[in-house]
């Protein structure tokens, strides 16, 4: 085949632009434009690296939850239990540390155990019993919510020394610090949770990109009958997606716990919606088969940046953030719907 064939050149151009890449580019562009605008119009606060790191610190657990959510959404499902599972993890760990005299390591195991248990049960119900994922995880959400209250109904701060030490550990980022009003140099820092979140992002990114299981997620989400014909175990693939999502809810829950250092039934309320919104903004399609962990990461950043912008505009009442989030969600959903409709049309 001749390489100077114009048709082929055109094809090559299109080759790079898969749906996933297209949506990823949109997301990154949205984030960059938003951040640059914030720096230009809202002044120095946003220019400081620490502002960016604080966004990471605040949202480490959301990043992890969103990554798990993206996995499920790529296979064409959804998991709305992650927020309440986070609350349950926080409460269980808090009670374990302060009332039962446990140590941090066992607390971590509890967190992972809870996440896996939810992933396991929900995965079986969705994949092997073929029940709508929304209903299953809605029940999971309410179960976790109820259990949290049953374990302990009130908020309290954890005082376990080992834990408090871990919680207040700050990792300095060299060369990113700034001088404060008194002229002292304040080093920039991130919390441990951020490192965990970045590791999760990298691991899941690699999983989706280079492993067979990861590619099977896309195939199942793209067309699960075709996937079956292509020799993929569709049920197992769906099950694994839910299991991994549950696991990441466990990890995310612990990271959240590490950030807030307390147990409360109202922790992480609405986190599932933020996770879904981040995934959608990050270019994961609800219909499945399209999405990218890198996109999800930028989705979370976009979402939290817009929240910060809303706050620094003086519109710090909670309703403005929710309304902006919903509006953003709506726009991205419509965008996806339109892309999908166009594709179907062009095929016919």
């Amino acid at each position: 085949m001749a390489t100077n064939n114009p048709i082929e050149k055109q094809a090559k151009k299109r080759a790079a632009l898969t749906d996933t890449n297209l949506l990823l580019i949109i997301t990154i562009a949205v984030f960059v434009i938003m951040y640059v605008c914030a720096v230009v119009f809202l002044g120095k606060g946003f220019a400081k690296p620490q502002t960016f790191f604080n966004i990471l610190n605040e949202n480490a657990s959301l990043i992890i939850l969103s990554c798990g959510m993206s996995l499920v959404m790529i296979t064409g499902g959804i998991d709305i239990s992650v927020g309440q599972v986070t609350a349950l993890v926080c409460m269980s760990c808090a009670v374990h540390l302060d009332f039962n005299g446990g140590n941090v390591f066992t607390a971590m195991l509890i967190a992972l155990g809870i996440g896996l248990a939810f992933g396991l049960v929900q995965g079986i119900l969705v994949a092997y019993l073929n029940i709508q994922p929304f209903i299953v995880t809605l029940a999971g959400m309410f179960f976790a919510k109820g259990m949290t209250t049953i374990i302990n109904a009130t908020q309290f701060n954890v005082e376990n020394e080992e834990f408090v030490a871990l919680k207040s550990t700050r990792l300095t980022v060299p060369g990113m610090g700034s001088t404060n009003k008194l002229g002292e140099y304040v080093p920039a820092y991130v919390e441990i949770g951020v490192v965990v979140a970045l590791v999760v992002v990298v691991v899941l990114f690699c999983l989706l990109r280079w492993t067979k299981l990861g590619r099977n997620f896309y195939a199942v989400g793209g067309n699960n009958q075709s996937a079956n014909m292509l020799g993929i175990n569709v049920k197992f693939t769906k099950f694994m997606a839910h299991l991994l999502c549950g696991l990441s809810a466990g990890i995310g829950g612990f990271v959240f716990f590490l950030h807030v250092g307390s147990g409360s039934p109202s922790h992480a309320a609405g986190a599932e919606m933020n996770a879904i919104a981040s995934s959608i903004i990050g270019g994961t399609m609800l219909t499945g088969g399209v999405g990218n962990i890198a996109g999800t990461f930028f989705g979370v950043l976009s979402l939290s940046t817009i929240k910060n912008i809303v706050a620094s505009l003086g519109l710090d009442e909670a309703w403005w953030t929710n309304i902006t989030v919903a509006a953003m969600l709506c726009i991205f959903l419509l965008l996806q719907s339109v892309i999908l409709a166009n594709k179907n049309k062009s095929k016919k």
Partner: peptide, 18 residues
């Protein structure tokens, strides 16, 4: 067509049998 339209051509040729 029993392939996955969201994957690349190469993937569709090899997925599920490597």
């Amino acid at each position: 067509i029993t392939l996955c339209p969201n994957l690349t051509v190469a993937e569709n040729m090899y997925i599920g049998r490597t």
